[in-house]
Nucleic acid binder design. Sequence first.
DNA 1: CTCTCACGATAACAGCGCTAACACTGCGGA
DNA 2: TCCGCAGTGTTAGCGCTGTTATCGTGAGAG
Lengths: 230, 230
Amino acid sequence: MSTARERILEATGELLATKDALAISTRAICDRAKVGMPEIYRQFGDKQGLLTAAADIGFERFLADKRRNPLTDDPVADLRTAWDSHVGFALRNPHLYRLMFTPTGDAKPQAIHEARAILLKAVERCRDAGRLRTTPELAGQTILSANVGVCMMALSFPELFGDPAISGSVRDAVIGKITGDEREDTRIGPATVLAQALVGTLTGSAPLDGAALDRLTGALRGPDAPPSEP
Amino acid sequence: MSTARERILEATGELLATKDALAISTRAICDRAKVGMPEIYRQFGDKQGLLTAAADIGFERFLADKRRNPLTDDPVADLRTAWDSHVGFALRNPHLYRLMFTPTGDAKPQAIHEARAILLKAVERCRDAGRLRTTPELAGQTILSANVGVCMMALSFPELFGDPAISGSVRDAVIGKITGDEREDTRIGPATVLAQALVGTLTGSAPLDGAALDRLTGALRGPDAPPSEP
DNA sequence: CTCTCACGATAACAGCGCTAACACTGCGGA
DNA sequence: TCCGCAGTGTTAGCGCTGTTATCGTGAGAG
């Protein structure tokens, strides 16, 4: 038989799968956990404390999800899959996610520091690969803020903001800007690639090469310039 | 003497300035509004209904704030000032903002459609100026999602995410990506401007001009290439 | 005048978070 | 063996909450 604390947390997690945190009564938790009412307060002091503890083990699952993603040799691509895994977790556990990232009152889950640290490590891998344009701290905060925003809007207004394309759009904008790694954009196509190469040359990440420049101007003067938009 | 409904909404707004929506009791509202308890239910049916109505008049103030910003001849710059005004409102009215953008239950404020419409108009001005790289709908959803994310993180974790630089970082990333209008980046400087001009030419928003191309290549071959980063 | 209807006051209900008081268990030390 | 003790279950209760029923008022419409 498991301990009382574990049963309470388990019951809370199960109820969070279907109901909002505030719609869960302590009595319902105790019924499901086969525990007397005072047990909650002996273990967690407070309903708030119980919810914070539940948010913390939610973070653990969240980070376990992220750790399952194998690291490739492209740290920027890893950043993008981490983003998608974040969104997936939020959509799979809406109430738990809200509890984790929009806590009520002043008791914040402790584990967000750990989440921030993991994201920081992923960003530092980009920096070590020479693919970061700001400080890792600012990059991590930027990515996480935008990521949470996409999830919260998708959860709060699914009919208006549930479109997965929004996530991709914000993701590529933020990660692209921070790493300087613009994604292929079908509306612009080869032009973006050329511009990227140009920027790379100018910033010194690639040496200024006269032959390359000739090829560039040749391509510019060449055919099939995309038509202007109406 | 004002009507009962107005007094209730006013009292709710005043209490929202200091306390969270869930920490406000109907009795406290009625006391402050000099109204009997049943009046709330006669007017709004529910506490949820009252909060939704309060969120709606919050949206009205929010949009009035935005309308105060005069339109310049640079629609992209207008987009950025709208972003900053959004963040300012959130920081000035934290509890009201949470009520507006993370509603509990399934009663969503109606006025978010209006907010979306206004943002859509601002984005369409960019499109009409030839400065939009996606559909206005996706652009608006992208900007609003990221904007809300920055605010929610700043409100929920001020010590970790309260830095105003985060807002600027996300803002420039998202708006820059969507409008193709990269901001001056001190790490890259003139190179970005040149690359922008190049992209503009290629996408047809500016005619392909041989003389301009010559000037470009001249500038590229010219002096003061920024040093490579360590 | 009477009828109606919006508003005010009072009291009650069930449910909530939370606490006090007490009984029971198992376990190590004297 | 007995004791103390820490962890756990049981019951009852407090004050507060959202919500509703009931009744009374007073002003305007017919």
